[in-house]
Simulated scan of single mutants.
Amino acid sequence: MLSYGFWNNKGGTGKTSLCFQSICFYAHQHPEERILVIDVCPQANLSELLLGGLANGGSDRLLARQGAVPRATIGGYFQQRLPSPYQPPAIEPLDYITTPCEYNDEIPENVDLICGDPLLELQANAISTLANNNIPGTDSWIAIIDWIKDLLQPLSGKYDVAFIDCNPSFSIYTQIALSTVDRMVLPVMADDSSRRAIQNAFSLVYGLKLPSDIYATYAFATRLRNANRTLPKVHMIVKNRLTQYMGKASAYAAVLRSIDRDIEKLMDSNPEIFTFEALNDGIVDVRDFQTTGVVAFAKGTPLYSLKTGKRDVMGQRVTVHEDYKANCVEHMNDLVGQL
């Protein structure tokens, strides 16, 4: 099973929005494949979208899954692991899986979901403590890092592709998620904080440009490599929310060009961390979805099936323009074509 992780250490880059649309577009274009979505984010916004969106009952449906027995979320699975952190207990993975199309008929039938859960934040300290225990004969950190892999192992052969939405942090549960991922999709915005965030992301995941060798000993990459684990590879940099009027001379374009130069330098110095050899093969531009996106996300609807014209969104009348929607769909097709 090939796995994609949508992540950036910086919030507000449109990560979850892009992940939602990518899942729907990919599943729609590949109906013969089975897709598993894992929402490893305490906000659980991706889960809410897949279950119907804020205006279509997604929040209430998510709360119901979080209140199920056993708790049908990634937090529910972690809760079962806490008493047995270093050896996988007898767990039925299907207890934690939801089929979104049973709640939201806009979602393709070949998508399954492990819902996100705010419980992750409460669990983080306990999980970190367990990961740092010194136990003779046991690499406690690796045992914890493998939690999602342990959950997926009994599902081998059931799914073709996994999409993992990661929290904009480098908390222990984010590390658990990223250690499971084969390929990373990194969204960026046209601002200088996104440039710094990309630099930070490479430092956190790959241990590049750390201020001291002391940090390198405990770095995510070092610990995975020491345990003969593979690191995720960067598969795509998504320049998200580009405006319709952004010309070559704009300040936004200058920032994005500087991000290109940073990536090119890293491709020269560390080509092994990328799946692409030419910059243009790994960069995708996505325009700002604007009102079209607001309506799509409020209703938990993929852009390709969104109805145009006057729409009611939580008591407000808004207009979805056909030409703008078509442009958004074209951009998402470009992105999904790279997966």
Results as ranks from 00 to 15, higher is better:
residue 164 I to C: 01
residue 164 I to Y: 01
residue 165 D to W: 00
residue 166 C to N: 08
residue 166 C to F: 02
residue 167 N to R: 09
residue 168 P to E: 03
residue 168 P to V: 05
residue 168 P to W: 04
residue 168 P to L: 06
residue 169 S to I: 01
residue 171 S to G: 06
residue 172 I to W: 00
residue 173 Y to R: 01
residue 173 Y to H: 07
residue 175 Q to R: 09
residue 176 I to A: 04
residue 179 S to N: 12
residue 180 T to V: 03
residue 181 V to L: 04
residue 182 D to I: 12
residue 183 R to W: 07
residue 183 R to N: 13
residue 184 M to S: 08
residue 184 M to R: 05
residue 186 L to Q: 01
residue 186 L to P: 00
residue 187 P to N: 05
residue 187 P to V: 08
residue 187 P to S: 06
residue 187 P to Y: 06
residue 188 V to N: 06
residue 189 M to L: 15
residue 189 M to F: 11
residue 189 M to D: 11
residue 190 A to K: 11
residue 191 D to C: 02
residue 192 D to G: 06
residue 193 S to A: 14
residue 195 R to V: 00
residue 196 R to T: 14
residue 196 R to W: 07
residue 198 I to F: 15
residue 200 N to P: 00
residue 202 F to Q: 00
residue 202 F to E: 01
residue 206 Y to I: 08
residue 208 L to S: 02
residue 208 L to R: 06
residue 208 L to Q: 08
residue 208 L to F: 11
residue 209 K to G: 11
residue 210 L to C: 06
residue 211 P to V: 15
residue 213 D to H: 14
residue 214 I to K: 11
residue 214 I to H: 08
residue 216 A to M: 12
residue 218 Y to E: 13
residue 218 Y to I: 13
residue 218 Y to T: 15
residue 218 Y to N: 14
residue 219 A to T: 05
residue 221 A to G: 04
residue 221 A to H: 01
residue 222 T to E: 02
residue 223 R to W: 01
residue 226 N to S: 09
residue 227 A to M: 07
residue 229 R to C: 06
residue 230 T to H: 13
residue 233 K to R: 14
residue 233 K to C: 13
residue 234 V to I: 15
residue 234 V to G: 05
residue 235 H to L: 04
residue 235 H to W: 05
residue 236 M to C: 15
residue 236 M to G: 04
residue 237 I to F: 04
residue 238 V to K: 00
residue 238 V to E: 01
residue 238 V to L: 09
residue 240 N to A: 08
residue 241 R to C: 09
residue 242 L to Y: 03
residue 243 T to I: 08
residue 244 Q to C: 08
residue 244 Q to V: 12
residue 245 Y to I: 14
residue 245 Y to H: 11
residue 246 M to V: 10
residue 246 M to G: 10
residue 247 G to F: 03
residue 248 K to I: 10
residue 249 A to Y: 02
residue 249 A to L: 09
residue 252 Y to P: 06
residue 253 A to I: 10
residue 253 A to K: 07
residue 254 A to P: 01
residue 254 A to H: 05
residue 254 A to C: 02
residue 254 A to T: 07
residue 255 V to S: 00
residue 255 V to E: 03
residue 255 V to H: 00
residue 257 R to A: 13
residue 259 I to C: 01
residue 260 D to H: 09
residue 261 R to I: 15
residue 262 D to A: 12
residue 262 D to G: 07
residue 262 D to F: 15
residue 264 E to Q: 12
residue 264 E to H: 03
residue 265 K to D: 11
residue 265 K to L: 13
residue 265 K to A: 13
residue 266 L to C: 05
residue 267 M to I: 13
residue 267 M to A: 08
residue 268 D to F: 14
residue 269 S to H: 07
residue 269 S to C: 05
residue 270 N to S: 15
residue 271 P to W: 15
residue 272 E to M: 07
residue 273 I to W: 05
residue 273 I to K: 01
residue 274 F to G: 10
residue 276 F to T: 08
residue 277 E to R: 13
residue 281 D to L: 08
residue 281 D to N: 12
residue 281 D to M: 10
residue 282 G to Q: 06
residue 282 G to I: 09
residue 283 I to H: 00
residue 284 V to H: 03
residue 284 V to C: 12
residue 285 D to Q: 11
residue 286 V to P: 02
